[in-house]
Simulated assay, not measured.
Amino acid sequence: MKKREPVSHIMTKSVITVNQMDDLKEVVAKLKSNAIRHIPVVNGNEVIGIISRSDINRLTFGALFEGQEGADEAILDMLSIAQIMTSKPKTVSPETSIRDLVEIFAKEEFHALPVVDKGILKGIVTTTDVMHYFLEQ
């Protein structure tokens, strides 16, 4: 393993994003159709939040009870992305070392971090990306 390998080597560069004004149903659709667990919320190229599948699952009953799809729809209609997202998420730069990233993931309860350079979203890096990196070593 290279000591100072940067996050840019393992991050996902083509990031699926949502806008704060989008519908929560759109977030759910993007999570499902892209088989992802985290979506940065952007205003232009600026990251203003992040929303995860876990955030959505906490709100909905579908995974717990059969026949509750209507309740899930109602909840998603009542709430906005701004109400659910983690605002001002911690970010890392493309030059952050993978070692430093692992320390952040180990100390804090993050599973994904937006990668930002000069205020512009460049990618997203997840704990899964780190595991794949270590498996390749």
Score class of each variant (00 low, 15 high):
residue 111 H to T: 13
residue 29 A to G: 08
residue 128 T to E: 12
residue 48 I to R: 02
residue 119 G to K: 07
residue 25 K to P: 06
residue 45 N to Q: 03
residue 100 D to H: 08
residue 90 K to L: 15
residue 36 I to K: 08
residue 99 R to K: 14
residue 59 L to I: 09
residue 114 P to G: 06
residue 5 E to G: 00
residue 45 N to L: 05
residue 121 L to Q: 06
residue 31 L to G: 14
residue 37 R to H: 14
residue 112 A to G: 14
residue 118 K to H: 12
residue 13 K to S: 14
residue 136 E to G: 13
residue 40 P to L: 06
residue 85 M to K: 04
residue 96 T to Q: 06
residue 95 E to Q: 13
residue 48 I to K: 02
residue 6 P to S: 02
residue 63 A to E: 14
residue 28 V to T: 12
residue 126 T to R: 03
residue 117 D to A: 08
residue 16 I to Y: 14
residue 75 I to H: 02
residue 126 T to K: 10
residue 44 G to P: 03
residue 65 F to S: 06
residue 83 Q to D: 14
residue 59 L to H: 08
residue 37 R to N: 09
residue 17 T to D: 02
residue 60 T to A: 04
residue 96 T to F: 00
residue 110 F to I: 01
residue 81 I to V: 15
residue 93 S to I: 01
residue 135 L to G: 10
residue 68 Q to L: 12
residue 32 K to E: 14
residue 70 G to F: 07
residue 28 V to F: 07
residue 71 A to F: 05
residue 75 I to N: 00
residue 83 Q to I: 02
residue 112 A to I: 07
residue 111 H to W: 06
residue 135 L to E: 13
residue 4 R to M: 04
residue 83 Q to G: 09
residue 59 L to P: 02
residue 39 I to P: 11
residue 109 E to V: 01
residue 66 E to Q: 07
residue 133 Y to H: 15
residue 14 S to Y: 12
residue 18 V to G: 03
residue 98 I to N: 01
residue 35 A to H: 10
residue 116 V to H: 00
residue 64 L to T: 09
residue 12 T to S: 14
residue 47 V to F: 00
residue 92 V to Q: 02
residue 34 N to G: 04
residue 119 G to A: 11
residue 14 S to L: 12
residue 39 I to W: 06
residue 62 G to I: 10
residue 50 I to A: 00
residue 37 R to E: 06
residue 11 M to F: 11
residue 46 E to A: 14
residue 31 L to R: 09
residue 110 F to E: 04
residue 124 I to H: 08
residue 29 A to L: 08
residue 32 K to N: 13
residue 126 T to F: 10
residue 129 D to S: 11
residue 103 E to A: 09
residue 11 M to P: 13
residue 63 A to R: 10
residue 61 F to W: 05
residue 106 A to E: 08
residue 16 I to P: 10
residue 113 L to I: 11
residue 32 K to I: 15
residue 79 L to R: 14
residue 32 K to Q: 14
residue 71 A to D: 05
residue 26 E to K: 08
residue 134 F to T: 05
residue 24 L to V: 12
residue 111 H to F: 03
residue 49 G to Y: 01
residue 125 V to I: 13
residue 115 V to H: 04
residue 78 M to I: 00
residue 58 R to A: 07
residue 53 R to S: 15
residue 48 I to V: 15
residue 124 I to G: 06
residue 73 E to V: 06
residue 113 L to T: 12
residue 3 K to N: 02
residue 97 S to V: 03
residue 90 K to H: 07
residue 13 K to N: 12
residue 118 K to A: 06
residue 61 F to Y: 07
residue 17 T to C: 05
residue 115 V to A: 08
residue 35 A to Y: 08
residue 10 I to W: 01
residue 1 M to G: 13
residue 120 I to R: 12
residue 10 I to L: 07
residue 1 M to R: 07
residue 73 E to M: 01
residue 53 R to W: 04
residue 119 G to Q: 04
residue 119 G to I: 11
residue 93 S to P: 01
residue 23 D to R: 04
residue 7 V to S: 03
residue 19 N to L: 01
residue 129 D to N: 15
residue 21 M to D: 07
residue 15 V to C: 09
residue 130 V to D: 12
residue 18 V to E: 11
residue 87 S to M: 01
residue 111 H to V: 05
residue 70 G to M: 05
